[in-house]
Design a protein around this nucleic acid. Sequence first.
DNA 1: AGCTTGCTGAATACACACCTATTGC
DNA 2: CTGCACGAATAAAGCAATAGGTGTGTATTCAGCAAGCT
Length: 750
Amino acid sequence: MPAAHDPSLLSPPSLPPPPSTRRYNTTNFDLPYLLQRAEALGVADFPFWGRVARSRTRMRDTTFSSKAYGTRDMKEITIEGRVQLDLLTAVQREHKLSSYSLNAVSAHFLGEQKEDVHHSIISDLQAGTPETRRRLAVYCLKDAYLPQRLLDKLMMLYNFVEMARVTGVPMSYLLTRGQSVKVFSQILRKAAQRGLLVPNMKPASGGGAFGGNGGGGPDSGTYEGATVLEAKQGFYRTPVATLDFASLYPSIMMAHNLCYCTLVPPGRVAAMDPDTVTRCPTGDVFVKPGLCKGVLPEILEELLSARKRAKADLKAATDPFVKAVLDGRQLALKISANSVYGFTGATVGKMPCLEISATTTAFGRDMIMHTKDLVTKTYTRANGYPADCEVIYGDTDSVMVDFRVPDTAAAMDLGREAAAFVSATFISPIKLEFEKVYNPYLLISKKRYAGLLWTEPGHWDKMDTKGIETVRRDNCALVRNVVGTCLTKILIDRDEAGAAAFVKRSIADLLLNRMDLSLLVITKALTKEGGAYDNKQGHVELAAKMRVRDPATAPAVGDRVAYVIVRGAKGAKAWEKAEDPIFALEHGLPIDAQHYLDHHLAQPILRLFEPIMKNPRELLAGEHTRSIALSTPSAAAGGIMRFAQVRATCVNCRAALPPPPKGSDPAAPAGALCGHCAGQEGETYARALAAANGLEASFAALWTQCQRCQGSLHQDVLCTSRDCPIFYRRKKVAKDLAEAAATVARFPDW
DNA sequence: AGCTTGCTGAATACACACCTATTGC
DNA sequence: CTGCACGAATAAAGCAATAGGTGTGTATTCAGCAAGCT
């Protein structure tokens, strides 16, 4: 690309245009852009943004990588005395969304869409007329205004300031560093108060471990985690009470005074007075608080009291959105508290101490088993209770008890009683709480269930769904909708037949190609560089393809890749059939409906209906699955059919028409009807016309909707938003309309 | 010549180990 | 003692679990073919 002809500020020679996700990614996009632009234009006195005079703003590349936040390439930009708050990073860290484009995030939190203009058009707008430049300016203003509103609405500053104060790290760390630096900072602060010194430990593996990330010593780094009780799968139509340990791991660490400074080295155990130490299930020994109170337990007390305050605020709030934000805040504090345990188990971290983490989980395992046994043994008919209770499930810190009573209020009473009774067998501050009742409760397997959640008798609070397709982001919206609707019908409406009917309808719609493309878009995160994958995967292959098509907008590491499954040759692997939804739409690639049915819809439906129906498989077979609208392209080598002449078909009965006579113009419209249908021209034409008119009307409606979204009813729609269902619908209707118009054109005499 | 039989290579099915993404707690 | 160049190290909460996919090896099925038989 010769840059000479274009001195415009909008297209610097060295910098690609922003993909839609980067538009509000100040630290990784806007600031580097400004720096590089100034460099390209030779504006030497520009990059001095900090509050330290004559200190030049510097930039360097880094990558951040952690299990929880994923891997991301980042830019580190030094601006002394000013806090950078990159909203994209903040949203990515605090919220699990399918798409993080400014558009999608605004729609999610503000209920507002924003047009998404492809970067190539931006140059055109700038180079156009005053009117197009005005439009560009409005668009840019929106780009700036939406992040500001998100910042306010999500109470980001408020939450970040609190987190920074509680953990004692600079605010910038909250977005550029992980959990461990927060824990370490608290340890340093507490140790300083006590006059203790913290050792500067060497990083785990001593050798020159750089370049290839192989090895890494998987043997010593791991320890046993929590117990997950066997899930007694089924659909429970009676109340199931849930008993939870409050902050299990923190409370264990506090109760048993687990800390670096209270761990007794094996060689010294014999010398200790047995009354002053605790011997743990792992065999490790820690001194009791009377002798020396641990640093970690004290940190935990502070974090938990901060969380208690947050919970009190949450209770006082009335606005549902504010409630949601405050809930996020208390959750962040809970995660910080749990990270203290995690920090001790992080073998690649600054100060691993597996004695602490392994002891913590060992206590937890004992406690959940103890709770299960005690409850099962106590709540029996023999002890005067209505029935023998059963623990049907439990994960880490919870047990789900079916007391076998029909009444929600009765189950709550029993739950409260059991919680108090079991709590009494533990030392402070360990506490088992009765929290909620599920009724009904659909238990599919470990870590996957759904139910109506009750916290007081009389009315249920909400439908709670865990681990099922509706809450997983690597499903398409179709699956989420079908499963979600079925759950609503089954749990709330108690209409199992209706749910089954809905499934059949959805399958028929899918196979008849009546699905919105937006419902079929799957997104998955690109977790590492393309070459680092061992197995081929659809989203990885597609990302590579997109890099070839347009490097500027292709997904980068850490981004979520959106794709649809299009039809491929017979036996093609799934990774060959993944395609960019916009590309598929624009090139008219057919969707592989069967693949969606077999690989995405079938299993979730079976799992859902298995506990409910006798023969769930009938949902996947039968009349509604027979209607395939399009013919499959033929087998070998990417579809040999591509080279075959497409024969025109009768508009009425779709029978193939005889080929046009030799020598005639092949481009001329074919006759409309076959000999058999020849008499029905009038009604067939009327039908075709009606279809075209209907499509025209819906296209106009969608177009207007998009115009409204862009804020002007007398200008072209430029938006190509991957996240907007209207966009897909508009494109599809446009295509259908073109086909319908072509059909109408085959009746030249009418 | 027409049919069956047995063989062979290819296609298909299946079990299994492993990788990857994501969630629960 | 200060400024600069150069090289080294930098950082990263945890485990349990489900599910879908890939790749591989083995067993089974099937089509095609030649030989043999009627």
